[in-house]
Nucleic acid binder design. Sequence first.
DNA 1: AAAATTAGATGATGACTGTCATCTTAAATC
DNA 2: GATTTAAGATGACAGTCATCATCTAATTTT
Lengths: 197, 197
Amino acid sequence: MKTSRETTARNRAKILGIAGQLFRERGLDGVSVAEIMASAGLTHGGFYRYFASKEALAAEACSLVAQQTETDWHTARDTDAEDGLAVLLSRYLTAEHRDSAATGCIYAALGCEVGRSSDDMLHQIFAEGLEGLLGILTEASPEPSATERRRAAIGRLSSLAGALMLARATKGTELSDQILAETRHWLESIQTPPPTP
Amino acid sequence: MKTSRETTARNRAKILGIAGQLFRERGLDGVSVAEIMASAGLTHGGFYRYFASKEALAAEACSLVAQQTETDWHTARDTDAEDGLAVLLSRYLTAEHRDSAATGCIYAALGCEVGRSSDDMLHQIFAEGLEGLLGILTEASPEPSATERRRAAIGRLSSLAGALMLARATKGTELSDQILAETRHWLESIQTPPPTP
DNA sequence: AAAATTAGATGATGACTGTCATCTTAAATC
DNA sequence: GATTTAAGATGACAGTCATCATCTAATTTT
């Protein structure tokens, strides 16, 4: 049956939200179109009224998650004007984040799969999303020069995503908790290189 | 037809080698049993004489790749007794490594997928393999105390795997090359924290 | 050399997948 | 209120997959 314009819009948003969670939890290839639609309370048939393909849904869902993450990071950093960097590190490198991939960082959850994807749109979306986070991290970085802040932001972001990924890959072992704790400790201990005179 | 014992052993090794490459290139779920067997010059039917399941093959193939990587890192570090760490960094964070996943780091290639896997054996294999690399990295780290060396090794390993994963996820964009270059530069610039008196 | 064993080929199974055609019914438009 | 439109359900399509049963021929064992 036909539904109202509002209901249609709500359904579209719901599909995108559910997809963003399921994709992060089980991978782009690990979730079927039918399952996403069922989780949104619909049947599989109507899917193609909303999206041209599963690939198109993946791109839009990833883009949406990336935007939301950027907003979250922004407010998290502004929680502590003195040391926004410490807030970001301490929120990211936790067992809770490791154990809730569905609502966590999309780069640590889907980075490997996107790297293998033949869909260049996904690479573009990931690059734009990462640039957004890098902007926030760069501003929160204490290094003296802009070049160094940008460099350190890239290094720190790589450490964060890498540590979360490895902690998940080793979950259930002692090493998993160590990776989170020690990477956080290490990042907090890193000294600014002395200004070259 | 039946084949000789040597041929059988050679075929088993070939299946494992091919699987190790295909899995890294396309993901554990991205390759079929039939394709692995065909790449090894066999048909799909004989597969279950070698392995109990695809899952069992994945575990054994990952374990083998992990061992080979540990050997490679060991010899790479010993290339330069003065600064083995710099050798490891400069070999890992390159465009060639990013563009040849089939023969590259298994942790950056399959970390996300293994993190989602319900097979605890894979988590164990990854943990053991990572511990091997951490041992090499710890010995090559310049920090004064053993605790700090271990911590820095974990941080550096997270940075390496994370940077490679993100560089692949953003391949084709400017950011991809920057992630490799800047992370390497950043890791080389990191100062040892001053000894707490 | 005969008998027993088994590596690997062929083929089938049931399950799952993305996508599309069709139908129903309610909303939107006139 | 009548007509048009389209959201979403139902069902089907062709393709892929992991796994297994069966068959064969060559190696091992006796």
